[in-house]
């Protein structure tokens, strides 16, 4: 589903990703952990084509994302992305927020776009907020709105960039529950996260990023239970404190 080979990415002189090789198969949930600045979020931006790359290849669903003849807009329709900041459109109601992309990007008739939007909002548990504006929602609800908005494009995979980092602690649970629900339904996902418990419980595999390389990647029990890398051991001991 997602094949990344020999990926290099730098911002000016700063090398952020230094040779990433990674395959994510259909239906797999991969969590990416690591300290800030290790390149986790940048990886997601590169997969989505929001950031150009210097070297290597990213293939999503048989399409080379960074090839010059690739239409990024159509690639992105197959790839939902949820950011740390939820970025709900403040001038639209909850329902319109979700219906916008199906209507203007997928060019669906309005009624059908609204139908899809309503279905996805019920899916994430916001069925009673359809006519509210985002400003009337809590952070957790806005993040679930962002998830519904991405799902409305019926993506083949989802990328989560620290989806719970900006939330108050008591609101983290509802968003994680929503992501968990998607995992159970078999959605292919890459989750950059600081929630170790979540990574351990939901993921099929966990990748530990350190200074732009995948330092260790394994099934959660092995990676958390018996970390081999010294950096990972240090990281985990810090996180546990």
């Amino acid at each position: 589903m997602i094949k990344i080979s020999n990926l290099y990415k730098s911002y000016d002189d700063l090398e952020v990703l230094k040779g990433i090789n990674l395959n994510v198969s259909k239906g797999e949930v991969l969590s990416v952990i690591g300290s800030s600045g290790s390149g986790k979020s940048t990886l997601l931006y590169c997969i989505n084509g929001l950031e150009p790359i210097q070297q290597g290849q990213i293939i999503v669903d048989d399409i080379d994302v960074h090839a010059s003849d690739t239409n990024l807009n159509s690639v992105r329709q197959n790839m939902g992305m949820v950011f740390q900041q939820w970025n709900s459109f403040p001038h639209l109601t909850v329902l319109e927020n979700v219906a916008l992309a199906p209507r203007i990007v997928s060019k669906l008739p309005k009624a059908q776009a609204l139908e899809i939007a309503e279905k996805q909002l019920r899916h994430v548990g916001l069925g009673d907020k359809l006519s509210k504006y985002p400003s009337a929602l809590s952070g957790g609800q806005q993040q679930r709105l962002a998830i519904a908005r991405a799902l409305a494009m019926e993506p083949k995979c989802m990328l989560f960039d620290e989806a719970t980092s900006a939330l108050d602690p008591e609101l983290v649970g509802e968003v994680l529950d929503t992501i968990r629900l998607l995992a159970e339904e078999g959605m292919t996902m890459i989750c950059v996260t600081h929630e170790m418990g979540f990574a351990r419980e939901v993921s099929d595999r966990v990748a530990f990023f350190h200074e732009g390389v995948i330092e260790e990647i394994n099934q959660p029990e092995e990676l958390f239970g018996a970390p081999k890398s010294v950096y990972l051991q240090k990281f985990l001991s810090k996180v546990k404190k």
């Binding site: 807009n73 159509s74 970025n87 916008l100 997928s106």
Partner: peptide, 16 residues
């Protein structure tokens, strides 16, 4: 920029 990236990530083109 974050808001615009969110819009682009939904498949909107520059003009949309």
């Amino acid at each position: 920029q974050p808001m615009r990236r969110a819009a682009r990530s939904l498949g909107m083109n520059y003009w949309q």
